[in-house]
Design a protein around this nucleic acid. Structure first.
Lengths: 354, 354
DNA sequence: CTGAAAGCGCTTACAG
DNA sequence: CTGAAAGCGCTTACAG
């Protein structure tokens, strides 16, 4: 269940060493570390400062945490089958925003990528521990529910990132962006430009936000043009070569549609490049859209119409939510929803400058 | 120095609770957790298994670490002034490789982005603690040396990632790739295609690997064409719009060179798009190269000639180095160097298919 | 203002 | 095979 390895010989400098050197009691050092300077004479304080510097002392946060029942760390759980899970532009921004803000407040951020929900349970059953958890999960609704409900058993407050399921009875909140609204903007934009047939290009794994977007797209587009003109393919993990091959096979048996609607920028750009390589001009023959609005929308020719998300801010807000929860003992809101902006570029609108 | 917040009321399930419920002594539970099953009757083992599941018990790794003088975690320190430090394609791959491998071995990975070397010292002086440190640092040689030497004071083994400085007296090792070799391949490739004038496009911040590449490029290209035909500009943090503006200003006062040699793929693609937008054809009028070989080299038209690095593997290898060091008590090698592969694409070679 | 003592949850000798 | 005791490094009442 747990691993151990040969114990290290190194002996740490402790509060006692500092106390001895400064000729004070250990709890004066403790008071010093906790900034209770009013409890000591100016001279005591000065001697402790000197002793800490001279010995290179660092408090042992494990011992402190044990005493205080507090870890000074937040775990970020990312459920994603890809081992290079942090490479995803959305995830890397969320993780950056979260860890940067936590660091400012003196909290560590422990990242934990997990291939699926079962692995998570095994992990937690053993030893992972934090003051709070930020969970960014893929998978089916049922799998995610099961995961989140079992994490909640451990009594750590939870912030769900980009989750669409509701858990009214659990001690948690959701930080997300308005994915449905973003999808609606894409749909209205394409319809306004006269597109009448569509291919929705979906990534793996199943992210709840993608499901929400797809639902809105399907509803609005089907309403406008009828069900036979809204198609769908799975594009795997967004790897360029894989998307190229998948779309190539699709084009071998289907006529190009008016608009290729990708659910992320990586797939959108791969689609665009595949079309152009086959002599299908973008946007005059076919339009292409992405979702995310990360740097890469600039990279294709023409650049990609997309929706600018605020992934870094999602991470930042998640950290804020954790702090408030830890300070007040309760979540003061159930949900934070950030708005999204449509970025119209050359892949849908001719003469539009990037 | 340290922050504390209202103590939480929650009381954790402990080894004693499990022992009581299973009607055994606490140390039988401890033995169970440490998989010393030969020290207990089969019946004891079964009762403990049941009790752990029924109570939802998780070992407190902080307490265990305190006793064992072990944290079961590795810190990844990334010195980078950008708050979204994990977005960089190289860093995100290293971090993924490291954390995935650590997780497999039951270790947590705590990521810590720091704007500069001084901030690191402040952080460590307070409370950050781990069994080992993986350090991926930018900055001047002097600043990095100072940082690494001061981290070494804390007696935690250190793995340096992509570091070029040597520290023969410290308990550390380096995991890196052959950046000089990669740069040499780029230089020889461009010279073989007849390029006689060059613009080296350098990113911020200062990464030691970039300095190594630049040195080789400058030496080899200058040798071949003389010093006046090898120029250099700083391109900031690789942000598309910024690179576009910087290169635009440069082109306003300089004639295009034969080859634009970017030190990473982001800058390479931004350069390529800027040139094409101004009617300079790639590769016939000017060639462009990147470095990194991440997914995005496919995204431009033509795709980008680059060097395929193995950033994920660097992270993976760093984790392996940590495990060996923790097992054996010493680093058995001072350095691991991974080879690099030239990826020739349309931005340098006409008719070359991606 | 300063100090001795107890205890956070574990593990490890050491007795029974 | 099982149990009582000490101790990892801290903090927090509680006395002096």
């Amino acid at each position: 269940m747990l691993r151990s390895s040969p114990q290290k010989a190194r002996r740490h400098i402790t509060i006692k060493d500092v106390a001895k050197r400064a000729r004070v009691s250990p709890m004066s050092v403790s008071n010093f570390l906790n900034e209770r300077f009013h409890l000591m004479a100016a001279d005591t304080r000065a001697r402790i400062t000197t002793a800490i510097a001279a010995l290179g002392y660092r408090p042992n946060s494990g011992a402190r945490g044990l005493r205080l029942n507090k870890e000074f760390s937040v775990g970020m759980i990312i459920v994603d089958p890809q081992p290079a899970y942090l490479v995803d532009p959305f995830i890397s921004r969320v993780a950056s925003g979260l860890s940067s803000r936590l660091a400012e407040m003196g909290y560590a951020c422990t990242v934990q990528g997990l291939p699926d929900c079962d692995a998570t349970n095994a992990l937690f059953a053993s030893h992972f521990r934090a003051d709070a958890l930020c969970v960014f999960a893929s998978g089916t609704r049922a799998a995610r529910r099961k995961l989140i409900e079992s994490l909640a058993r451990y009594d750590e407050p939870i912030v769900l990132i980009e989750e669409t399921e509701r858990f009214p009875k659990l001690d948690l909140m959701t930080v997300r962006q308005d994915d449905s609204g973003g999808a609606e903007q894409i749909a209205r934009h394409l319809l306004s430009l006269g597109a009448r047939s569509f291919l929705l290009m979906m990534p793996e794994p199943i992210w709840p936000a993608n499901v929400a977007r797809e639902k809105v797209l399907t509803t609005l587009l089907t309403e406008a043009v009828g069900p036979n003109r809204v198609m769908r393919i799975e594009c795997g993990y967004g790897n360029f070569t894989a998307v190229q091959a998948i779309l190539g096979r699709w084009l071998a048996v289907n006529k190009p549609v008016d608009a290729f609607v990708a659910n992320n920028d990586q797939i959108g750009i791969a689609a665009l490049r595949t079309l152009v390589a086959r002599g299908i001009r973008v946007p005059s023959d076919a339009m292409v859209t992405g979702f995310g609005g990360f740097e890469i929308w600039h990279y294709s020719d023409p650049p990609l119409t997309t929706v600018i998300s605020r992934a870094y801010e999602l991470g930042h807000r998640s950290a804020e939510a954790v702090f408030r929860r830890l300070d007040t003992g309760r979540f003061d809101e159930r949900e934070v929803v950030l708005p999204l902006t449509l970025q119209i570029s050359g892949s849908t609108a001719i003469h539009q400058r990037e």
